[in-house]
Design a protein around this nucleic acid. Structure first.
Lengths: 228, 228
DNA sequence: GTCTATAACCGGATAGAC
DNA sequence: GTCTATCCGGTTATAGAC
């Protein structure tokens, strides 16, 4: 972070990466519980204490996994988005990429995301510690929207990135529970629900929906209040 | 379970209850992590091994908590439901009761529900082990619906209890994350969303909504496929 | 600052005696 | 059914090497 030297990666950074790579590989192969810190250290060729020097806890490895996969996915989706103009297509592309990047971890995802469900946990997507990752995700969602040809109702516009990020969290939660082959149900869900969302947005200006819209905006604000 | 004798509670059952009571009290007072199995055993006046005789794991205490609170809540809500005829009112009553019963545990709920988010965990509301609790909840939801004056579209009717149970799970998840005083946001959410649901149901027969309805029914079936 | 090695602590879980 | 002793894994502590 504070490395002002132009080195691509210091020795420490290499070690850190090696530990993380090893851990994620073992998580995939044997699952989270079966992968003990002692095993990770041994496989990475370091002492246990050294793992703890870079990752204060086993959960910090999971947090590192989150931000790595998020970064990778944004980098993968960005160039592809240039070709798409409609909000529906852009949303779909983004979300299909999202779950695609997670796919190798599907079997362990339940365990990996376990503590994400605890609001008190730093791993919660709503926690202060997840702030950077969350804001990056929301910012990317904003790009997905702004780069599209869609016209968004004025009152919805400011929080739409947050709303759609919440929706993204929901899609990932569905994917975690999806036991269909290749998680195809999730991909169908993405196609169908992006469709529904775009339709809803075009209906959003109907006078009868003003009230419910206002309420929905408040619910979202409750969940992401710190960075709205 | 298999006790054929008419005794109200055998000695073993008393011990079991004592351990559970003690555990839940300590969870509320000190939180889940801080309450070690050793402390529970000591406070309940038994040996650690004995706790494990009744509850194979710490998580089994949480599971017992689930089914106890569910049973209590159904018993509390049932007599009150007689007074209400509209689906909206009945749903509201049920859900307000639901979160009301959970309220003493709000501070620990995040940790208590942690593993509920893992589909592989027996504590997941979708797991085989949660089957009995889940089916009881769905059955109660069926009563909430059937006892109402609402007319339900034919294709939706069979799975509506499951759909509304899923919605209930969602409300509880929101409640867990709700940091507003007295979780009043959740109570507002209940009022607003029951309203939205009843309206949606009355709109459900519109021809344009057939297709999306079919898809929604399939999504629900995916999540609760074993007992639909 | 990066790293090793080893022992120890703590809490969930198990084994086996009574 | 109930106990004590033990194991196992996350985590910490220590003491020192590059």
């Amino acid at each position: 972070m504070t490395d002002i030297h132009p080195r691509v990666s210091s020795r420490g950074e290499q070690t850190r990466e090696r530990i993380l790579d090893t851990a994620l590989e073992l998580f995939r192969e044997r699952g989270y519980e079966a992968t003990t810190m002692r095993v990770i250290a041994a496989a990475a060729g370091v002492a246990v204490g050294n793992s703890y020097y870079y990752f204060p806890s086993k959960e910090h490895l999971v947090q590192a996994f989150y931000s790595r996969i998020q970064k990778t996915q944004i980098e993968a989706a960005t160039p592809l988005l240039w070709k798409e103009k409609s909000l529906r297509a852009r949303l779909r592309l983004h979300l299909h990429e999202r779950v695609h990047g997670l796919t190798p971890y599907h079997a362990v995802s339940g365990t990996l995301f376990r503590s994400a469900a605890d609001p008190q946990s730093p791993l919660s997507p709503f926690s202060a510690e997840s702030g950077p990752t969350r804001r990056a995700s929301v910012a990317f969602m904003r790009e997905v929207i702004d780069g599209s040809s869609a016209r968004i109702p004025h009152d919805v516009a400011p929080s739409l990135p947050h709303i759609l990020w919440l929706y993204e969290v929901g899609v990932v939660a569905f994917w975690v529970h999806d036991q269909s082959p290749q998680q195809q149900r999730t991909h169908e869900l993405i196609d169908d629900s992006t469709d529904a969302i775009v339709r809803l947005l075009s209906l959003a200006n109907l006078p009868g929906l003003r009230a419910i819209r206002k309420k929905m905006l408040r619910w979202v604000a409750d969940l992401v209040k710190d960075d709205l």
